[in-house]
Design a protein around this nucleic acid. Structure first.
Lengths: 243, 243
DNA sequence: GTTGAAATTATTGTATACAAAAATGTGTAT
DNA sequence: ATACACATTTTTGTATACAATAATTTCAAC
């Protein structure tokens, strides 16, 4: 973040390569040539290699034993596990928030955020998708912050960067999922329940609810992969899932 | 790992800088000069910067807004949170192992390992510390492997690399902790209970036990920091804890 | 003595050159 | 035709050079 403002070349390489990998621009499993990619992005090899190291760390690329790296491939189970872990981590953030208490400011912000989310989901107007997505992202970020722990926040967000594990991984361009609007209502009810549990200092309930909340993503993943695969190309990262 | 065999300069820089940071060789908070460190380690800046990036990612260093990096400092609560997270992650590995079942080979290996650990802790001979440490490390690694998920294994181990969060962070050179041998016996009883829960497919119990097991580290941390600070210099990473 | 601005120094981020090692291609022997 | 060894060509890992930016010092003004 702070680095992404300053360091143009590295952050450019990071963002571009990441989105190309998620888009499936590189064939899964094929070694990617540093010189070729560097030339393609108009960046020297030094910041590119920095970006590749980072993407290896994120798990999107994997190192080849003899040198260089390739696009990683993920099994169905891998994605399920990543989503499960995100649920576990958000559950921990929620539990810790409940156990240790939340600052008045965060509580107030969350309360107002939930009203806006209610409005977006249950309101009379037609659903504004992109605003829902950003509100949802803010809710999940706020959840990590309510834990009051910078380490928990950092590690939850790291897990959420695993492929298809983020809270909004299946939210883009998916209006065609049946009962999708209905599932957003369920999600919002869960948001409220999690917040309620935190306010009541009910740690175990908050944790269980947050875990269950993450399973909505698992359900969407299952749908996209097994029932309606033509949606796959609209979901970034789906190209990495071995079919 | 695979990279550490091949790439001598990078891995050399990584290991040396990491251990220097943990030893407190660099003053906490002070910016570390790339050229100076590179010269000191007899390595060029390129692999050194790679190592620094990695250590930033691990959380041992933090980026300075204007460029470069400094040694990170951790509060008491930060360490407590890191240990908590390790417990949560190992708990997840244990629960998943219980829920999904464990391969015969892993189960057999774990059974034999537990016998060796019993021998080390409860045996007639005097405790062989270094062999206990490596057996204990293998048990925790095996726990992640019993989950059957490479993603869970990878992320558990990543969390365990947080400062003072590893299962053996407080095991070295601490024979002077009162009742230390007794606490090893408790730990071993917990190892057995976790394994028992996994074999019986009791996921919730396995998870709870693994979490509680991690709290032994928290207890040791509390002891070293608040009751017997002269032990601190023997524990790598303790130099990073703000006093 | 303190403050502020300009100049100097040091440090980082990036590009590139180079050497070692891996991948590829060629030719020969069987 | 296939397998194996050797030579060639890429490709990676490392060192270093360079430019832009940040830190520091110096010096003057108040």
């Amino acid at each position: 973040m702070s680095k992404q403002e300053r360091s143009t070349q590295f952050s450019k390489a990071l963002m571009e390569v990441r989105s190309m990998v998620l888009d499936g621009s590189f064939p899964v499993g094929e070694r990617l040539s540093e010189t070729a990619v560097a030339e393609q992005l108009d960046v020297s090899r030094t910041p590119l290699r920095q970006a590749l190291d980072r993407l290896i760390d994120e798990g999107l690329l994997e190192r080849i034993e003899t040198g260089g790296c390739r696009v990683a491939s993920f099994s169905f189970d891998d994605i399920v596990d990543a989503i499960e872990l995100r649920g576990v981590m958000e559950g921990t953030a929620a539990r810790v928030a409940a156990e240790r208490g939340v600052s008045v400011e965060k509580e107030t912000e969350c309360r107002q955020l939930l009203i806006k989310l209610d409005d977006a989901v249950f309101g009379a107007d037609e659903l504004d998708f992109s605003s829902y997505v950003s509100l949802n992202e803010r809710f999940h970020e706020l959840l990590t912050e309510m834990s009051g722990s910078k380490i928990i926040k950092r590690e939850v967000e790291r897990i959420a960067r695993l492929p298809l594990a983020s809270p909004s991984a299946f939210l883009d361009g998916q209006t065609s999922i049946p009962n999708f609007h209905a599932s957003l209502k369920i999600a919002q009810a869960q948001h409220r329940a999690i917040f309620d549990a935190i306010c009541r200092r009910e740690g175990a309930r908050a944790e269980a609810l947050a875990r269950e909340h993450a399973r909505l993503a698992r359900h969407n993943f299952d749908y996209v992969l097994n029932i309606n695969p033509r949606l796959a190309e609209r979901v970034p990262g789906m190209a990495l899932v071995a079919s």
